[in-house]
Amino acid sequence: MRTARISPARRFFLLHLPMALIVLFAIGPYLWMLITSLKPESTLFSANRSLLPDVVTLENYVRLFSRTGFLRNLGHSLVVASGAVVLGLSVSITAAYSFSRYRFRGRRTLMLTFLLINMFPVVLLIIPLFIIMKHLQLLDTHAGLILAHSTFAIPFATWMMISYFNAVPRSLDEAAQVDGCRPFGAMLRVVLPVTLPGIIATGIYIFITSWNEYLYASVLAGQDVRVLTVAVQTLIGEYEIAWGLLTGGGVVGALPVTLLFMLIQKRLIAGMTQGAVKG
């Protein structure tokens, strides 16, 4: 095969420029948010405003943490997202392991159901969920939100974990069983350590979706348990939008997710290359 030799100019117009535009389009709003959050609120609407701040200030952040209950909102988000990770992982790991390792009646149907659930818009579920939560007195509690987030986190996480487990040869479980493990022990002591990168990736995925979720968080909770997404939204008032606080809250909220995503990305690649058992 011949490798095409492309001139640097063509390369720039065909590859680098379009990519730069796409990236700019994608992160532009975030950059704007970050820049805005660093400007003094008073300059936001002044006549001689500019794109880049003349003075960089953290006053929005200081106000955010001192005046509003933002720290508490962060705490709620953390509790809910972590709870969703723990619940979601323990259910999806065991479910995915069975799907991957055992052939039982209704296996395919069940797997398809898991897939289908992912295709429904979450809005459809919200009314039944509201009624269920009300009866269980779980409205406006951490447990309620964790359960609600699990309804979409678990199916997707299960599918993710199935593919990670399928990448582990079954002979590994069998070797463990011959060596003296019970089936559950084989999963725990041999298969899980091998799939650890995948488990971490799945856990972070659950964390991110739960952390970013707004609809359930605002309908099924919002008073006692007001998570970050809901709190940020309340900064948009009827007559006035507190842009400084809003962008500051957005940045703080996006920070952990961004960091986790950078982590997951490395892990995902590690997971792909680590699967080599023989060869």
């Binding site: 002979s171 070797a175 069983q177 011959v178 058992v277 023989k278």
Partner: peptide
């Protein structure tokens, strides 16, 4: 009896060594 109670040992085609 499950495999662990049969007092056997097995060598697998792909060796099935515990990678970690």
């Amino acid at each position: 009896l499950p495999p662990r109670d049969r007092d056997i040992a097995m060598v697998f085609q792909d060796y099935a060594l515990y990678p970690n």
